[in-house]
């Protein structure tokens, strides 16, 4: 049995009257690519932010490599957690007052106290991994949406944590770039022994990279399994989602809400 990387137990979260998570339980194992899929607005980003400790759930328990995320007390614990896990924002969340290279090197300079020259070399390396050489001195506002997303990935890689949460890293990227990013995620798992949780809408790319896939719908995980198992699933929600059909239980629920 592999070591447990992330354990989420009975997680519940509401915003006002809106119940986003109605009790979510799953485990991500060490050195695994775990893909979370689900319709827009089902709380995939909120789920990742709770794992990253940015949003407090109403109840439940989250453990990341033995660290109890919801009860981080002392500062050393917080720092250890940050070094273990990082989150790539769906929007990128780049610091728009700094150039690209400083965004990537930010952690090394501001937190690790590295000299700017040394940090810049590292940043250049990670930028080149993502096909962004030559953008070092641009500002985030001068980049395209897809480029911003890749800078955000480079920034996360530069922190070199054990576990990375990617929030839709490939949406807005062209097919070639998507394939490159998919390969990068597999490389992170195989060569650098990282654990990756990836939120994705892209069914094809998900099947390509995932060790296991979880389908999130209406506040619950409706199915977890290997890509093969998901493909063979008889669950109507899963079937509608992966086949991208306009008719089915997902649409029915949406219509119920509107009506």
């Amino acid at each position: 049995m592999k070591e447990k990387a992330i354990v989420v137990e009975n997680l519940k979260k509401s915003f006002g009257k809106k119940e986003v998570h109605k009790g979510i339980t799953f485990t991500v194992y060490d050195r695994e690519v775990f893909v979370v899929m689900g319709p827009s607005g089902t709380g995939k980003s909120v789920l990742l932010k709770q794992i990253a400790g940015l949003i407090k759930p109403d109840s439940g328990k989250i453990t990341v490599y033995g660290i109890d995320v919801l009860n981080l007390k002392r500062e050393e614990e917080v720092e250890r957690f940050r070094e273990t896990l990082t989150y790539v924002f769906q929007s990128g969340a780049l610091f728009d007052s700094y150039p690209v290279w400083y965004n990537v090197a930010f952690y090394l300079i501001e937190k690790k106290g590295l000299k700017e020259k040394e940090a810049r070399e590292k940043a250049d390396y990670y930028l080149s991994l993502l096909g962004l050489s030559g953008t070092q001195d641009l500002y985030p506002s001068e980049l395209s949406g897809g480029m911003r997303k890749r800078v955000a990935v480079a920034r996360a890689l530069c922190m070199n944590p054990k576990c990375i949460l990617f929030d839709e890293p490939t949406s807005g990227l062209d097919p070639v770039m998507t394939a490159i990013l998919d390969r990068l995620i597999l490389k992170l798992r195989d060569d650098f022994n990282k654990t990756c949780v990836v939120v994705s809408h892209d069914v094809k790319s998900a099947f390509r990279i995932a060790d296991r896939i979880a389908i999130l719908f209406d506040g619950r995980i409706v199915e977890v399994g290997t890509p093969e198992e998901i493909k063979r699933s008889q669950n109507p929600i899963v079937k509608q989602f992966i086949n991208g059909e306009p008719e089915g239980p997902i649409t029915e629920l949406l219509e119920q809400r509107d009506g």
Partner: peptide, 12 residues
């Protein structure tokens, strides 16, 4: 724009 969350993410 979640930049403050990003700072927190880097333990700053």
């Amino acid at each position: 724009t979640e930049q403050i969350d990003a700072l927190e993410m880097m333990a700053v």
